[in-house]
């Protein structure tokens, strides 16, 4: 009988107020979510499954828009639903962390002529996203093979090397700028920079901290600062030199990561609060108004639900 009853439920809402005949202590309840989005919808479902299960309710029937659960402790469920925001935020956080194994850090990189850190929220997630970020920077033409005008007294290949180095400094300057709202971060940066580049002039450090390194600077100044930086590096061929500098920049960025995340990370709780609007469950009360048809703010035509094609009335 119970199996027939469960199989005959057409929508999650049909579960409301029901119980299992085989054990009258076991009640049914449900959650449902708006199904307009993609991965965020599946994250919401996962968060809600975890929330219900932690309250002792077991998922038993699954629909695209929600899940029916069986259990008996309504008080514990009600208490747990107060933590809905935390559950969603936690699920988002672990999804993004997990996801950061697959190239999220690359998405943070912008071209040297525009915002060089296009999506800072994807840079500071983990050690791995920092590595991906710098590897993606390293592959940019502006680093590996920059266009250079003819510059007097130096060869084209030397000019390419120096401009490549300078452009790397632009990326580092932006990283430091984003973490620098904290005075602690500035001190930490100074220490690590001196540790990673013991023979580089203190002037280079000061140029970075005062944000004097940028793409709009005249070419002579770029070359001058790059030479200053180059003098403090062990002499190597261009490819190796750039690789080595990038490795050191990765370590520097990783030590600044907590500061970057504080100011530029993803606000998981804010996202969770927005997503909560997509969730409904039997005891979740919102003010609703019933209309003959939903017309407020609509200029012309009959507004139909994009999912079920019925006239919207709530």
């Amino acid at each position: 009988d119970d199996a027939d009853m469960l199989a005959s439920l057409k929508r999650v809402e049909d579960a409301e107020g029901r119980y299992l005949k085989s054990d009258r202590n076991l009640k049914l309840t449900y959650h449902s979510v708006g199904v307009v989005r993609g991965i965020l919808t599946s994250i919401l479902h996962k968060a809600l499954h975890r929330l219900y299960e932690d309250a002792g309710w077991h998922p038993i029937v699954f629909f695209a828009e929600g899940t029916i659960y069986v259990g008996n402790d309504e008080r514990r469920l009600e208490e747990n639903l107060n933590n809905l925001e935390e559950y969603i935020a936690q699920e988002l956080r672990s999804f993004v962390q997990e996801r950061s194994k697959y190239g999220v850090g690359e998405k943070a990189v912008g071209p040297i002529t525009q915002r060089v850190i296009r999506s800072p929220e994807y840079l500071y997630i983990s050690e791995n996203t920092v590595i991906e970020f710098w590897d993606a920077v390293r592959r940019q033409n502006s680093i590996a093979n920059p266009n250079v005008d003819r510059i007097s007294h130096i060869s084209e290949s030397e000019a390419k090397e120096l401009i490549g180095l300078y452009n790397l400094l632009i990326y580092l300057t932006e990283v430091v700028k984003q973490c620098n709202k904290d005075k602690d971060a500035e001190e930490i940066f100074k220490c690590i920079f001196r540790r990673e580049f013991p023979n580089v002039s203190e002037d280079v450090l000061n140029y970075i901290l005062s944000s004097k390194i940028a793409n709009i600077k005249p070419i002579e100044e770029k070359i001058r600062i790059a030479k200053l930086f180059r003098e403090g590096l062990e002499t190597r061929v261009r490819e190796e030199l750039l690789d080595d500098v990038v490795e050191r920049f990765k370590r520097i960025t990783n030590e600044l990561r907590e500061f970057g995340e504080k100011y530029h990370g993803i606000d998981y709780n804010a996202k969770a609060r927005e997503l909560m609007n997509d969730v409904s469950y039997p005891r979740f009360r919102v003010d609703t108004e019933m209309w003959d048809a939903y017309i407020h703010g609509k200029k012309k035509g009959t507004p139909l639900c994009v999912l079920c094609s019925n006239r919207a009335t709530t």
Binding site: G38, I39, L40, V96, R99, K107, K271, E274, L275
Partner: peptide, 11 residues
Amino acid sequence: ICSLCEFESKL
């Protein structure tokens, strides 16, 4: 584009 849809598109 709403902030959730933007977030979704980046994910």
